[in-house]
Write a protein that binds this DNA or RNA. Structure first.
Length: 335
DNA sequence: GACGTCACGGTTGAA
DNA sequence: ATTTCAACCGTGACG
């Protein structure tokens, strides 16, 4: 369980161990593209400069503003296909050693050096998944390559999550100048379908607490981190801390925009610095939505980003089946 | 003063 | 159901 939020040296609230809300991530990139210096962005959004630096660096590298995939295990190398081959090798030569199997997997092109299971993994497979072949083989022989049923999807596919460690795939050009998150999506859905473009992104960007989790599903399919509560919970200085600001949490503007992002400076009206208030971390999110809404010009203001406003927004089809999970229990508890 | 980097303490989720 | 472990996080400090 995350703490109830901590306040950094700049007065911003953050949740240790958790990514910044996407609204803030977006703002960081937006402001940077407007020519605002990272140090100013840091002060303005009350995010540590190290974090700003990291987010901008990642954005420059991957085109994504989204955080990497948190948690989970490394992609499995012992896919059903590999297991099947191991089984075959073992059936053909019950006395085969694990290291021999390993060599054969490589030689036969079943695996390459990057996904070749370790000898210990192979041993484990032999022990746990294949077991006693002398008993199993005749049973198996009648079955057409009945490898372990799951998972149907290759793990590597699933793990094509956006991450600095997962550079832009060869076929997918980076799209500097706007957030090209869609390029990392393996989904067969159209980008528009996935993203829902503005309607979704506006909610997302504004961290609508009521964001329909269904719209987040795609993301969870490619990201081990089902998108954090940030995507659907209210912000406190950009941090989802419903309990900190229960009222602001549900404050929504007439057009459906929650009041969360409004405290960020909009590109069209960026003062060099935020009020040097010794900010209550919650202050910025007190629900004064009007500022953001009325000055909601970051999309159409002719800013450097505006030509790609949809593209900017697009990446924010944050998907998370866990988003609701993350958020609601917290808010429920807070209430 | 600005900024890149990294140790740290933290969260997460598959195995 | 619980534990382990390796992924990621943002902060804060250093250079």
């Amino acid at each position: 369980m995350p703490a109830f939020g901590e306040v950094n040296q700049l007065g911003g609230v953050f949740v240790n161990g958790r990514p910044l809300p996407n609204a803030i991530r977006l703002r960081i990139v937006e402001l940077a593209q407007l020519g605002i210096r990272p140090c100013d962005i840091s002060r303005q959004l009350r995010v540590s400069h190290g974090c700003v630096s990291k987010i901008l660096a990642r954005y420059n590298e991957t085109g994504s503003i989204l955080p990497g995939a948190i948690g989970g295990s490394k992609p499995r190398v012992t896919t059903p296909t590999v297991v099947k081959h191991i089984r075959t090798y073992k059936q053909r030569d019950p006395g085969i050693f694990a290291w021999e199997i390993r060599d054969r997997l490589l030689a036969d092109g079943v695996c390459d050096k990057f996904n070749l299971p370790s000898v210990s993994s192979i041993s484990r497979i032999l022990r746990n998944k294949i077991g006693n072949l002398s008993q199993q083989s005749h049973y198996e022989s009648g079955k057409p390559s009945h490898a372990p049923p799951q998972p149907a999807l290759p793990y590597n596919h699933l793990y094509s999550y956006p991450s600095s460690k997962v550079p832009t795939p060869p076929g997918m050009a980076a799209l500097p100048g706007h957030m090209a998150m869609h390029r990392i999506w393996p989904s067969s859905h159209s980008v528009t379908d996935i993203l829902g473009i503005r309607s979704i992104t506006e909610q997302q960007i504004s961290d609508s607490p009521s964001f329909p989790s269904a719209k987040l599903e795609e993301w969870s399919a490619i990201n081990r981190t089902n998108f954090p509560s940030a995507a659907c919970s209210p912000l406190v200085n950009g941090v989802d801390k419903p309990h900190l600001e229960p009222e602001a949490k549900y404050a929504q503007t007439p057009n459906g925009l929650p009041s969360t992002v409004n405290s960020y400076v909009t590109p069209a009206s960026i003062p060099p610095y935020p009020p040097p208030t010794p900010v209550s971390p919650y202050m910025g999110f007190s629900g004064t939505s009007s500022a953001y809404v009325s000055a909601h010009t970051w999309q159409g203001s002719g800013s450097a980003l505006s030509p790609h406003s949809c593209d900017i927004a697009a990446p924010f089809a944050f998907k998370s089946t866990a988003a609701a999970r993350d958020f609601h229990p917290v808010s429920a508890a807070a209430l």
